[in-house]
Simulated scan of single mutants.
Amino acid sequence: MGVIVEQFPLYVQGFLQTVRICILAAVGSLILGTILAAFRVSPVPPLRAVGAAWVTVFRNTPLAVVLFAVAFGLPELGINGSYFWFGVAGLTLYTAAFVCEAVRSGINSVSAGQAEAARAMGLTFSQSLSLIVLPQAFRTVVPPLGSVIIAMIKNSAIVGAFGVGGDLFAVGVQLTSAQGYAAAGVLTGVLLGYLILTIPAGIVLARLERKLAVAR
């Protein structure tokens, strides 16, 4: 435990970098996943095909392979950037597939009469989805979305293995490999950092779930 005290500023730096990765990936995956869910329930066949293909590919591909494809494939296409942004992009693309399925399940749980009433009022598909269906769907998908986000936080450790730099994973590698600290103490600090992220996230999501349940 002495390493945690001695290297506390470094742990804080790694923690903040991990928080940054998680926030960016969470926002990106929630937006992209919702768009993909809209594609999956769209009356336009090509959009449904895109949504289904995305989910099939990314849900059945290991995150490490996705990160390799983004980090080494995009530069070959002329898209250059830092490993930090490649890592965030890979985590976002991967997590969006799971967000999509969670949101789609919420959309399917909304009574079909809601959409029919919206069409009777003259609303388009996109209007009825954004104004009527999605607000109700999101109330029902807090638990699965919460599980997806918590899994994403844990998956950020894999992103750190791809040279993002400065995150909790990188701190662990630096202290054990470069500075020679015992692995047990170093990894205890890394573990505590991730627990500080995941446990409060679970508590907040549980309270949000109860609040929305009362609202329903």
Rank of each mutant, 00 (worst) to 15 (best):
V41L: 15
F68T: 06
L212W: 05
G189S: 02
G51Q: 04
T198C: 06
R216I: 11
N80C: 06
T61P: 14
W54G: 00
V141K: 00
F169P: 08
G180F: 13
R216G: 11
T188C: 10
L191E: 10
V3W: 08
P135Y: 02
V133I: 15
Y83F: 09
A201C: 06
G163H: 11
F98A: 02
V5P: 15
R207A: 13
Y194Q: 02
R40W: 10
V186I: 04
V50I: 11
I21M: 06
L205F: 03
S130P: 13
Q179M: 15
T95H: 02
V186W: 01
V99S: 04
A64M: 15
L67A: 08
C100D: 14
T198W: 02
L175Q: 08
M152P: 12
Q179E: 15
G14I: 05
I153M: 06
A161T: 15
V214N: 13
P144E: 01
L47C: 09
V27H: 07
A215W: 11
I79E: 08
L16R: 11
G172R: 04
I23Y: 03
Q127C: 13
A96M: 08
V3S: 03
V19F: 05
L195E: 05
R139Y: 02
L197A: 00
V19T: 06
C22T: 13
F39V: 05
L10Y: 10
L131G: 10
A37Q: 07
V88M: 05
L168I: 01
T18P: 03
V142Q: 03
A184H: 12
M121V: 11
Q179D: 15
L208M: 14
F15C: 10
V55S: 01
S82F: 03
V190D: 03
